[in-house]
Structures are given as structure tokens and as C-alpha cells.
């Protein structure tokens, strides 16, 4: 695996959301731009071929993006949201990037099927066992942190809303004109995963 040792600046919370120190929510600096394809092995590439062109800043961010794609399945992930989630997760847990890299390395080395990942980590009592759920909770519910320190980073753009957006609106958003909900739900056609 090609390694990139780009130092990351200190992450500061901005308006309640932790964001990269370089440019909050903005595109990745072209000078720091890497592609995920350059950071992963053939096994990861085979799991998430659609994600390989995603720009990343460094190995830690790359591991986060690769793991996110593996865990979330066949879904193009919102790269801006990904930056926000990553920054928030790193902000509350300085060792987050290292954990992501370690877990990705383990998946690649052992060629672990994503469907069997959590069971394998739990069975091994791995210190990395909580990590997949942290990532999925961030992507799918928009939440990072625990207990009273939990922060909401995403709602409408969280994956749980996006994955059903052809049928449902997130609560508080109007479904449609009065009575439109009496019609049969018309999910858009797509593959077996509902992807249009």
C-alpha cells in the first residue's frame, strides 16, 4: 500500500460542526489531492471499485473513505459530507485515523467479507470492533460522539434518508400535497439494492 504522510492541521469546531482546518466544507486543496485508488490494495479495490476516484487528503482520510465505502455498500458517498464526518470523528477521537488504517489493513490482509466483518471483530475481541458501527452511525444517522457529547452532523443527507429518498421524505419535510400519501408507494426502479 502506498503511504502518504501528510500532516493534518488541528481540527476546530465551526458552527457546531468540526471541519478540516484547511477549508470548511470546501473541495480538497488540489495540491493535496490524492485518489483513493492510490491508497488501497487490489482486494479493497475489488470491493469498492466505484469509489476509487474519490479524492482524499492523506492515508488516514483515505482509510476512512475506503472503510466507509466498504461498510456502506454500493453507494456513491457524498465527499463533502464525508469530509465533515471525518473531521468530526477525528476531532473527538485523535486516534481515529490510525484505527481506520489498522482496520483497513486487517480487512485487506485477511480479505474479510464486509458481511462477516463485525462478527469477526467481535469474535476476536478486537479493539477495533466499535469502529465499523461508529462509521455507519456517522454516515447513516449523521451522529458522532457518545452520550451527552453526541453531535448531529447530518440529517437530510445522512445515508438512511438518501437510501429511501425515492419513497420517503425525512420527518419534518413535507411529503407532498394533501392526500398524496394515499397513493401506492412508487419506488423508483433500480437494481436489487434500490439504487437507481
Amino acid at each position: 500500500m502506498k503511504s502518504v504522510n501528510t500532516a493534518r492541521g488541528k481540527v476546530e469546531p465551526v458552527d457546531g460542526c468540526a471541519t478540516p482546518a484547511s477549508r470548511p466544507d470546501g473541495p480538497i486543496d488540489p495540491a493535496r489531492r490524492k485518489l483513493l485508488a492510490g491508497l488501497v490494495t487490489a482486494y479493497t479495490a475489488s470491493l469498492v471499485p466505484w469509489a476509487l476516484a474519490v479524492p482524499v487528503t492523506d492515508a488516514g482520510h483515505g482509510a476512512f473513505v475506503a472503510l466507509s465505502a466498504i461498510l456502506a455498500g454500493k453507494r456513491v458517498l457524498n465527499s463533502v459530507l464525508g469530509q465533515r464526518l471525518h473531521a468530526a470523528l477525528v476531532d473527538i477521537e485523535p486516534g481515529f485515523d490510525a484505527d481506520c488504517q489498522a482496520l483497513l489493513k486487517q480487512i485487506e490482509a485477511q480479505q474479510i467479507d464486509p458481511a462477516k466483518l463485525q462478527g469477526a471483530l467481535d469474535a476476536a475481541h478486537s479493539s477495533l470492533a466499535p469502529l465499523p458501527r461508529k462509521l455507519m452511525r456517522a454516515w447513516c444517522l449523521g451522529l458522532v460522539g457518545d452520550g451527552e457529547a453526541t453531535r448531529c452532523v447530518a440529517y437530510e443527507n445522512a445515508l438512511d434518508a438518501v437510501m429511501v429518498a425515492d419513497v420517503l421524505k425525512p420527518p419534518t419535510y413535507a411529503y407532498g400535497p394533501y392526500g398524496s400519501w394515499s397513493n401506492p408507494p412508487a419506488a423508483k426502479g433500480g437494481d436489487e439494492h434500490g439504487n437507481a
Binding site: I70, L117, D160, M163, V164
Partner: peptide, 25 residues
Amino acid sequence: SQVLSVTEALIAEGVYGPEFEKQLR
């Protein structure tokens, strides 16, 4: 909407990869 409770359940169960979206829907 059952999306929130289903999502929480799938994460708790450790359902990942393509199966996640399939199961969620």
C-alpha cells in the same frame, strides 16, 4: 417512518456492505 429504528437495528446487528441498503429498504 420506520427508517430510524430499522437503521439503528441494522447498525446494532453489524449488517454492512451491499446487504445494508438492501435490508434497510
